[in-house]
Design a protein around this nucleic acid. Structure first.
Lengths: 202, 202
DNA sequence: TGTACATCAGTGAACGCGCGTTCACTGATGTAC
DNA sequence: TGTACATCAGTGAACGCGCGTTCACTGATGTAC
């Protein structure tokens, strides 16, 4: 049996992988369909068959990123019952996933390069948000019945997302990924703790 | 006296203004020196005389943004003495400046398009950070002597910055700038309040 | 006060390049009979 | 089981376009004398 390479097998996935690799390396600025095709080892016209244009590809990458984020956060809080512990687990997972998937997050955060109205993208984003909101609901039940869950969840989302953005900035100084990862990771616990206390105060 | 237009007068400022206008409108993706030159009404080779390349121009825009941010935050907390009030004033100013200067903030947040080592950029960034840290120090003095000011300031920065990022996302749904502005503004007070309680808890 | 000259800011034509898109094609796969 | 055919995935040449950069230039300004 000869291995055929004419048909790729799963080119969409390969293109998403090439995309996050390129973007993690060089940022979103100079990104192009031709580059990603080269990276994936296919002709430059191939990506159009699956994603239409660059916005389609990046939207798919963003949706994938939110999906991974939701999965990892869900896995992190399963079987965790204390309000503080649930929030810490979810927050830590958020930051970890972001630091481990810089290509995905660069696309997720830059809103002008994706189709914001894409159904899959919205669905995965909402799924991730719901997990955080679920942790906040635990805080309301266990500690602070008067908590406005919507506002509190937005607060939590803002805090962890802001921490990720700042972690990128810290990288400027550190210039060593390992160090940055450690530094940001060390910041997560105290910062999520501030966050938790903010929600628990009544 | 004839008004000469050959020499612009202050082309660097005009180019920065054209830059934030273009980026607020279309995002950073397709931005080019030729576009900004057209917007400013000069020939396409003129910007190079002042900024060298696109990175130089955007770095200057980012530094200007941090400068405005620092100025506005400083103005907002002058003569305010209570810890809670100072934090609220600074946080509100941060979000207001960000929403009023979307072009500047888009550049400030996308780290891969500016020269991170630029002296002016670093200086203005540090200046803005210091003001927030100063508010946190007030909290430490008035309410919680054991507060780790560095970590707490990072927490605050992350929270307000995250809120700005999320405000952009809310805009997706609203699609009406005025509404978004109001919504995000209404969120600031409760969220800064959570933040404050987090710092005050001991 | 006037003249000469150096310096600086902005012009516009020219260049080569990588881009997205189009299109006729070819190779592989799946289905009907 | 074998054959014919439709469908789909990927190719590679060609196109026009906007880009950054270069370069000789021109117009305005400032300074020396």
């Amino acid at each position: 049996m000869t291995v055929s390479t004419y048909h790729h097998g799963d080119l969409p996935s390969a293109l998403r992988a090439a995309t996050v690799e390129l973007i993690a390396e060089k940022g979103t600025s100079g990104f192009s369909l031709r580059q990603v095709a080269r990276q994936a080892g296919v002709s430059h016209a191939a990506p159009a068959h699956h994603f239409g244009d660059v916005e389609g590809l990046l939207t798919s990458v963003a949706a994938e990123g939110y999906g991974v984020l939701a999965d990892e956060m869900a896995a992190a809080i399963v079987d965790v019952e204390g309000a503080r512990e649930r929030l810490l687990a979810a927050g830590t997972a958020y930051v970890r996933v972001a630091l481990q998937n810089p290509g995905h997050f660069a696309v997720m955060l830059q809103q002008d390069i994706v189709n914001r109205n894409d159904a899959e993208l919205s669905a995965q984003g909402v799924r991730a948000y719901q997990i955080l909101a679920d942790c906040v609901e635990t805080v309301r039940q266990q500690l602070n019945p008067e908590l406005d869950v919507d506002k509190a969840a937005t607060f939590c989302w803002a805090t962890v997302q802001g921490l990720v953005t700042l972690a990128d900035k810290l990288q400027t100084v550190a210039d060593d990924t390992e160090t940055t990862y450690t530094e940001a990771t060390e910041l997560v616990a105290p910062i999520v703790n501030f966050m938790f206390e903010g929600l628990a105060a009544r």
